[in-house]
């Protein structure tokens, strides 16, 4: 299944938005965290600044999010992982609420109780988790619900290649195939589980091969390309909607930034990220659009300016919104 011009443009715009979002966050995140503004002797203070805590950014991994989400509807479920922004943006999660959440503000998606690894937007059926591999069984549950409710909704579980060595992943694959659930398991192979290379963590080359052990199709997308992901995901989503069960897709993708911001990245060659950026999927898709006559400099500048304004407005919204009252920490333990 090839994308229409409209779908290509949607993926391009979303990728531009994700990149703008992540690169802005990379800067905002550092505010207040570096000397001389922090405790003497520290090189970096993770708990300081307007966006405190861990921060895992997805610059470079945009094709996985847009290639899959291009096929999804509002009623379809997405369960992301600890590096969730690209999925959230591609699933149309409320950008203002999501950004406020990362600033810990009262009007954040979780009223400041979740932060960047724990974003919940039930309006578009998006959630994520900071625990590696934990989302796959939950996606099975959403898919089970769709089946029980007689809907053709699907659920997508996104996770990194490190998660494919978790028991939760294997239990979920078996369950999904056994019960023929409309789930698409999407593994982002960005080569590293924090610092450990895939070759040092995973006994086989491609996690797509693991699908065979559970009687489901396994598809390897061996290029960090939105259209290639789009084709693989289109098949998988259509199959799930037809009631034919789950698919496992692995995408070889690229992580341009550290595992988290502040990561010294001593485990990979100094110029690796720079080399990876030579094959920027946004540039590649932009060139395809230009070749089809769907994009030119003027249009590109216009859409980038619109997107940038939207992203920057979200950051301003997050920055300027009020914090919750401290005692609001006591609310929402239960849903009563």
């Amino acid at each position: 299944m090839d994308p229409t011009s409209e779908q290509l443009l949607w993926m391009y715009e979303k990728m531009v938005e994700i990149r703008e979002y992540e690169e802005t966050m990379a800067k905002v995140y550092l505010e207040g965290k570096l000397p001389p503004k922090i405790q003497k002797g520290l090189a970096f203070d993770i708990g300081a600044g307007p966006v405190p805590g861990e921060m895992h950014l997805a610059a470079g991994q945009e094709p996985v999010a847009v290639g899959v989400c291009a096929h999804l509807r509002r009623e379809d479920t997405v369960v992301g992982a600890h590096r969730p922004h690209h999925f959230a943006i591609a699933k149309d999660v409320d950008l203002l609420g999501m950004t406020s959440e990362m600033f810990g503000k009262a009007n954040g998606l979780g009223k400041g109780k979740g932060g960047h690894m724990h974003l919940f937007d039930p309006a578009v059926k998006f959630s994520c988790s900071g625990i590696v591999g934990a989302g796959a069984p939950q996606a099975c549950g959403a898919a089970l619900a769709a089946k029980k409710l007689g809907k053709d909704w699907v659920a997508v579980s996104f996770f990194g290649e490190g998660a494919a060595n978790q028991g939760a992943f294997h239990e979920a694959l078996n369950l999904a195939s056994l019960w023929k659930l409309p789930v698409i398991f999407v593994c982002e192979d960005n080569k590293y589980g924090i610092s450990v290379e895939k070759s040092a963590s995973t006994a086989i080359e491609s996690n797509a091969d693991r699908a065979a052990g559970y009687g489901m199709p396994g598809v390897l997308v061996d290029t960090n390309d939105a259209v290639a992901v789009f084709r693989a995901a289109g098949e998988a989503v259509a199959r799930a909607r037809r009631g034919e069960g789950p698919t496992l897709i692995e995408v070889k993708t690229d992580r341009y930034l550290g595992h988290f911001q502040g990561d010294p990245e001593t485990y990979r060659p100094k110029n690796e990220a720079q080399q990876l950026r030579q094959h920027d999927p946004i540039v590649i898709l932009g060139a395809q659009l230009r070749a089809r006559g769907e994009l030119d400099d003027a249009k590109d500048a216009a859409l980038r300016s619109t997107i940038s304004a939207r992203v920057q407005a979200a950051y301003e919204h997050g920055r300027n919104s009020p914090y919750p009252a401290p005692e609001d920490a006591l609310l929402h333990v239960f849903a009563d």
């Binding site: 898919a143 029980k148 369950l175």
Partner: peptide, 28 residues
């Protein structure tokens, strides 16, 4: 069997599935 579902011996799998199904409005 649609509503009384025997599961594999995969507690993480079906506890997680209960969470996902509950988020969709079911009551597992």
């Amino acid at each position: 069997p649609e509503r009384i579902m025997d599961t594999p011996i995969s507690e993480t799998g079906f506890m997680g599935a209960a969470i996902g199904a509950a988020a969709e409005g079911l009551r597992p």
